[in-house]
Design a protein around this nucleic acid. Structure first.
Length: 115
DNA sequence: AGCCTGACTCGGA
DNA sequence: CTCCGAGCCAGGC
């Protein structure tokens, strides 16, 4: 890896793991930051997930499929961004309730095949 | 080095 | 159900 600090290399690895997990989220499903962190072997680092996504991951990354634990679109610094995320999700068939929440039990991503 | 902020989460009131 | 405080890590000043 070219010119990357040791500390940066560590974070880069975490980010890579996070992006890899987000990329696995199927179309029409959503995952929470905490869930992504856990799947990326980074339990408790939900905030790091949001941070990684905020920095902008690789092209084509389905970042819009990541919601907070409440099942709502987290507010971001950039105005209107939340609306974009919601629109993209609705375009994939994800339904938002009147209160702007997604039923995680219905649209939640379950990486582990659970019956 | 310290301090503040941020696409988070959880437990308690 | 909502609101608060504490814990978490990374980055900019």
């Amino acid at each position: 890896m070219p010119r990357v600090s040791e500390r940066a290399a560590g974070t880069a690895r975490s980010h890579a793991a996070i992006y890899a997990v987000v990329r696995r989220i199927p179309r029409g499903r959503v995952a929470t930051y905490g869930q992504v962190a856990r799947e990326a072997r980074l339990p408790g680092h939900a905030r790091l997930v949001g941070y990684a996504l905020a920095q902008g991951g690789p092209p084509g990354l389905p970042w819009h499929r990541v919601l907070n634990a409440r099942g709502t679109v987290s507010v971001r610094s950039e105005p209107g961004g939340e609306d974009v995320q919601r629109a993209r999700l609705e375009g994939e068939g994800v339904v938002f309730s009147a209160s702007g929440r997604v039923d995680l039990a219905r649209h939640g991503w379950r990486p582990r095949t659970r019956t």
